[in-house]
Write a protein that binds this DNA or RNA. Structure first.
Lengths: 214, 214
DNA sequence: TCAAATATCACTGTTTTCAGGGAGTACATA
DNA sequence: TATGTACTCCCTGAAAACAGTGATATTTGA
């Protein structure tokens, strides 16, 4: 099965990036790309959905933004799936999008693999939301105090994730091809940075940060 | 400050229970009680909200149920706070209630202390939702698979909560006036029951069960 | 009422965590 | 160039977690 995607984003660089990522997945073809929502709507009004399967769209765009675009599409062309890929994660926006039946939402800093998984999940008929998105959404819905954005490095997050996934220090060392001592250092730094007492605290932070499926 | 509450529930036993709980909190007075939502609306239509502060209501009631009651009140008498106390936790219902601006939701099996905290939080102007409610809501919103209800005893839950709150075995033993060995047994049982490998897994389950603030 | 579940405590031994250090390299930037 | 930050590795020692096994009393439920 081959799937035809369309992309809407006013940053050419993003479209290029997406294009290169999708090269690795031959089942997906980028049919056309657009610079804003208005172009998409115009295109669909003229050509119809035909064999298009999925729209990948940014949120902030000139003329017609992603929120409005999603809402228009879901009303006029509900068979076309929509995946929002956005820089910022905002609880209110997510809420609006979900109300408007969006099919997925991943942050722009997501890994290539996650993006592909999102696309595959959605064309298969299910919804896909990143853990970070879910987290932001619940926080917003229940007016939770935001996880004070303690900045962790990429490596620290990686280790934290593995720790919270019940791996021992030795196991993490093996997966990351690092010394056991190194992982121990990371563990200590994390405990001190996040001001927790032990593994339980680390795990809770990992969940709060959307590092794993809570 | 004294607060006047009204209660709507078709189970007399529940009203009695609530009454006895509220005896311990002299700042709260139960003004009147009702057997269903229709009675409440009728009463308010005749007498107005006057000095009433909070309605505590069940969900399943004859004639006018809790969902509808909340929606009516929030439209006609928005100054009256509403707290839903229900047997079952259903994501869809929670969603509707939140859309209709409900002020709180706790399950009927909540501890006395939590109920009082909910009431106090709400009359102070904030919202209150139990952790279990939050959990059920996100699960429903994102169509998560439910935490397979592995049944834990009350004691096990208590210990699990303390474990996930970063207490050591010794600390837990001290708080519960039990032997350190006993807590170690519980820990082992929990790890085996929940089929996890260590503290990280236990913590994740504790969160999933709504035992603590995630 | 009798078996099962629950709650409690104990011993032994291994592995892991946690706390406290120190230290070298690479890289960016001020 | 000097400074800072991230990343890596090492050591010691105590405390805690984890694994296995077993025991007793009480409560619950079929």
């Amino acid at each position: 099965m081959n799937y035809n995607l369309i992309i809407a984003d006013d940053h050419k660089m993003f479209i290029d990036g997406l294009q290169s990522i999708l090269k690795e997945a031959p089942e997906f073809t980028i049919a056309t790309t657009f610079k804003n929502g208005a172009q998409v709507v115009k295109y669909l009004d003229i050509n119809g959905v035909k064999d298009l399967h999925l729209l990948i769209t940014d949120l902030t765009m000139p003329e017609v933004d992603g929120i409005e675009l999603n809402s228009i599409i879901k009303e006029k062309y509900p068979s076309l799936k929509t995946l929002v890929v956005s820089m910022h994660i905002d609880g209110g926006m997510i809420d609006t999008l979900i109300r408007n039946n969006v099919d997925g939402y991943v942050p722009k800093n997501a890994e290539k693999d996650e993006l592909l998984e999102a696309i595959r999940t959605i064309v298969a008929g299910e919804k896909y939301f990143s853990n970070e998105v879910k987290r932001a959404y619940t926080d917003a819905m229940f007016e939770n105090k935001k996880a004070e954005e303690i900045s962790l490095t990429q490596r620290e997050k990686e280790v934290l994730k593995l720790i919270a996934e019940e791996n021992t220090t030795q196991e993490i060392a093996d997966t990351l091809f690092l010394s056991k001592h190194t992982i121990e250092s990371y563990r200590k730094n994390l405990i001190s940075k996040l001001q927790v007492k032990n593994l339980a605290g680390l795990t809770k932070h990992a969940i709060k940060m959307g590092l794993l499926d809570s």
